[in-house]
Write a protein that binds this DNA or RNA. Structure first.
Lengths: 235, 235
DNA sequence: AGCCTGCCTTGACTTACGTCAAAAACGGGG
DNA sequence: CCCCGTTTTTGACGTAAGTCAAGGCAGGCT
């Protein structure tokens, strides 16, 4: 793979000059991870951050009891673990490749040196961190004040908005999606079924079609108590 | 109150020169809020960020059903809503003064201009955002993979570590603490009682003494299933 | 003192969601 | 095409924690 090209495709580096990009490419190390391979674990010393050239990573946390929660999933062009650069110490969560792919690693100190000379880069980084913060606050809200059906509804609508087609395929295997929504596969499965039974969606294999976006939105917004059990249909 | 002095006491501005501090004081507007007064609401256009000169704020979210979740509580010297500066749009949560006090407001655009000329400030800001991110990730983990007793135990230990005295008084009224831990007053009350019954803490009015830090730590770390219902004592 | 208002606690009940276990469904190799 | 491992689904069940509804226990005010 072409390192320079990969660097140029990173959103965080948008708007930077050719010289800066070259410098960044200079300090980046290519690393390849296979499907399911661990990139780092929560608690590992944080020595730099990564970007995805190809593939998909999940950032996740585990409890001692073995439960997992997926904080975020990143794809090509995105960076992750950038928190390592400024607040040193250890990674606050684990990262694992969901699909095989190439990643770039930017070592902390060398990156900081580039940053000092490049106000644009610093600005971009500030924007990125702010966006992340915003997302996390949103996720916190979901987790603490919304129930699973509402979270799922919101996620489906999001997927629907991204792919303009009505018929959408999940971006993650269902088990992973469950962990992303802060629940377990069994519950996800049941809620999907309930949505289908109530005519909100249609399930055909792993593809999902949104039948009633309006009701889904109501569900996503309010708490489950929009209409009695769910839809207007008798139970 | 003395604006210049308040600005100098802000952690985010640590290490800046006198000139920079003066410029910051120049753009800051003093605002006073009474106890319980709203500073901004989730969804309001984000036009700048705040710092606390005196008093205490809570950053919180509400569901349509009226439930509240406290994301963070800030005291003197801390800044909040800084996400507004870089990722514009609207505030992602609401802010309310828990105690009457003076606040400084830094308008977005003017602050950005200062930032452009001041790499140290940008660096500090990056550090701050990173720290926040770290905290939020931690909170996410708590909420999604730990139960209320574990969260409470962790919080008590934290309070205990801060005040070197064994006898600690809560930093928040219990109802607020409940919202901070992602639960409701009733549940908090019950769990505290259970802790007391099991000899982990002693409750005298609103003061709490940690009796068995070891068992509290075990609780905070693992899931509730460390020792059968709770302690080794029979039920 | 007395009263009121807000906060905290307690009890009985409900429920969303997790656990455990087993059956289906799926998806490649061979 | 069949077999095996993984993923998904379904069912029966358990439980943490939320809801609803009374009380207690302040502390401030008149």
């Amino acid at each position: 793979m072409d390192k320079a090209q990969a660097v140029a495709g990173i959103g965080l580096f948008a708007g930077l000059g050719a010289k800066e990009l070259a410098a960044l490419a200079g300090i980046a190390e290519v690393r390849r991870f296979g499907r399911g391979e661990d990139i780092f674990f929560s608690g590992d010393p944080a020595e730099g951050f990564f970007s995805v050239a190809s593939g998909k990573v999940r950032i996740y946390q585990t409890s001692l009891a073995g439960k997992e929660h997926i904080v975020h999933v990143f794809g090509p062009g995105e960076v992750f673990a950038e928190v390592a650069v400024f607040a040193g110490g250890v990674y606050p969560a684990s990262a694992q490749a969901l699909e095989a792919g190439d990643y770039l690693f930017f070592p902390r100190e060398r990156f900081r040196r580039l940053l000092a000379d490049d106000p644009d880069l610093a600005l971009n980084m500030l924007g990125l961190l702010s966006m992340r913060l915003r997302q996390l606050v949103k996720k916190l809200e979901d987790l603490s004040l919304r129930e699973v059906p509402a979270r799922l509804a919101a996620h489906l609508l999001l997927l629907g908005a991204e792919s303009k087609k009505k018929l959408l395929s999940l971006d993650l295997p269902k088990g992973q999606l469950a962990a992303y929504l802060g629940t377990i596969p069994e519950t996800l499965s049941r809620v999907l079924r309930r949505f289908a039974d109530d005519g909100l969606i249609s399930l055909s294999g792993s593809a999902i079609e949104i039948l009633d976006a309006g009701r889904l939105e109501a569900l996503a917004a309010g708490t489950a108590a929009g209409t009695p059990p769910f839809g207007p249909a008798a139970r």
